[in-house]
């Protein structure tokens, strides 16, 4: 299983995916970090079988809400990621990859609902509290997908 944490270091809770990847590395999982352009993200999962993506969500749920979705066969809902202002969002990258036949056979998306996506560094308390649980869930998924 390849693990990729997504986000923007300088947008508060948007960094959650990146920080989760760092904590996973401390626990021996070779998690990668990806910032910026999601069109290049697809290149990172070419030729692998299993994929875990971690990102902050912005769906209107309570901050810190955790989600795990198996998107191996069903689409990733775009409504979870309302705040990407890029032309291509995470859901677009996953679905485009599925259409092009380059999506790994097993894909799991772990999300944590953000509170603060303004410019700046540091996670909100709700997201910080949720992160250890998220990291545990991802760890368990890498062992028993």
């Amino acid at each position: 299983m390849k693990v990729i944490g997504l986000g923007n270091e300088f947008r508060h809770d948007d960094a959650a995916g990146l920080i989760a990847a760092r904590r996973l590395r401390e626990q021996g999982v070779a998690a990668e970090e990806h910032e910026g352009d999601l069109a290049t993200l697809m290149d990172r999962w070419s030729g692998i079988d299993g994929l875990i993506l971690i990102d902050a969500t912005s769906s209107g749920a309570a901050p810190g809400t955790l989600r795990s979705l198996n998107v191996s066969t069903s689409p990733l809902p775009r409504e979870l990621f309302k705040s990407s202002t890029h032309a291509l969002g995470l859901a677009d990258a996953v679905e485009l990859s599925r259409t092009l036949g380059t999506l790994p056979a097993r894909v799991f998306v772990f999300g944590v609902e953000a509170r603060d996506l303004t410019a700046g560094i540091g996670l909100s308390p709700e997201v910080e509290r949720a992160l250890p649980v998220l990291v545990e869930e991802v760890l368990s998924c890498t062992k028993h997908p």
Partner: peptide, 10 residues
Amino acid sequence: MTDMSGAREE
């Protein structure tokens, strides 16, 4: 939300 260019705000 791998986004630099301005997240949605109020």
